[in-house]
């Protein structure tokens, strides 16, 4: 393990029944880095992210691997400390109970507060406001979650993660339902966070979006690591065809930024 790495997952395996979903996957993220995790459906991306967030171990015993945050065993850390270190942003937040957007983001503060403080404690409120303004969702703070669209709820979920004021962000398809405006804005937010020394891991099916922001990339295929490294080195036509063999894909540099992008080839 290098000195610099903020967060690392080593030899993560996970089986669902008799099926091996993750097979000895390892990666590290440094402060300021955006890592993008790519792979086809069912390749174990979400499972890896949940395992890294420390939420899977409770479910079953068929999970092995080490997670380290600043060199500490992440799973042995106190729950509140874990939430102050690593924020997990789910693809969708539940809206079965009447909760406003503000109240939802406020839950991101439960890891910061001592037990008997009021939820409207000034510091919490300021942090929530800051996070919501950053995620462009302050204007519907008093709206009920189930009146919001999928993309709007994702902005709220991201704001909740930011309100945790964690150092590591694990985003599971967290931008997938946003429109292009919001995606671009959230891309800038993620880059700002990385600039402040946060480490970000991003799962996305939108491959071109992922390459735009990330510096490093982890390709996952059938639960195994296919390639891991700098975007320009990993993102080759050969690797991409291994990931998605059924479609004839072409990798070419973006005309504006020069980072590799995927295009559909002539389907003939």
């Amino acid at each position: 393990m290098t000195e610099k790495s903020l967060f690392g997952v080593y030899g993560m395996s996970y089986s669902y029944g008799s099926e091996l979903v993750l097979n000895e996957v390892s990666f590290e993220i440094e402060a300021g880095e955006i890592l993008s995790l790519l792979g086809p459906n069912g390749s174990g991306k979400s499972t890896l992210l949940k395992a890294a967030a420390g939420v899977l171990r409770l479910d079953r015993k068929q999970c092995s691997g080490i997670i380290r945050y600043r060199g500490h065993d992440f799973l042995k850390m106190d729950h509140k400390l874990r939430a102050r270190s690593v924020a997990y942003v789910p693809p969708a937040i539940r809206a079965e109970f009447p909760l406003t957007a503000f109240e939802t983001v406020l839950m991101g503060r439960s890891c910061q507060a001592t037990t008997m403080r009021s939820p409207h404690y000034e510091k919490d409120r300021d942090a929530v406001r800051e996070a919501m303004e950053l995620c462009l969702c302050w204007s519907w703070r008093d709206q009920d979650l189930h009146t919001l669209s999928g993309g709007e709820r994702q902005l709220v979920a991201l704001a909740r993660g930011i309100a945790q004021q964690a150092k590591v962000f694990l985003l599971d398809e967290a931008l997938s339902n946003m429109d292009l405006n919001h995606q671009a804005a959230m891309g800038r937010v993620l880059k700002t966070l990385a600039g402040k020394g946060c480490a970000i891991m991003l799962v996305s099916h939108d491959v071109n979006l992922a390459t735009e922001w990330a510096q490093t990339c982890l390709l996952l295929n059938k639960g195994k690591r296919l390639a891991y490294g700098k975007i320009r080195e990993v993102f080759t036509e050969e690797n991409i065809r291994k990931l998605y063999p059924e479609s004839s894909l072409v990798v070419a540099p973006s005309p504006t930024t020069g980072v590799p992008k995927i295009f559909f080839g002539n389907q003939g």
Partner: peptide, 14 residues
Amino acid sequence: DGLLMGEQDALTLG
């Protein structure tokens, strides 16, 4: 409050 969001979210919220 945290449990309202489901078990996994509650865990990541500390």
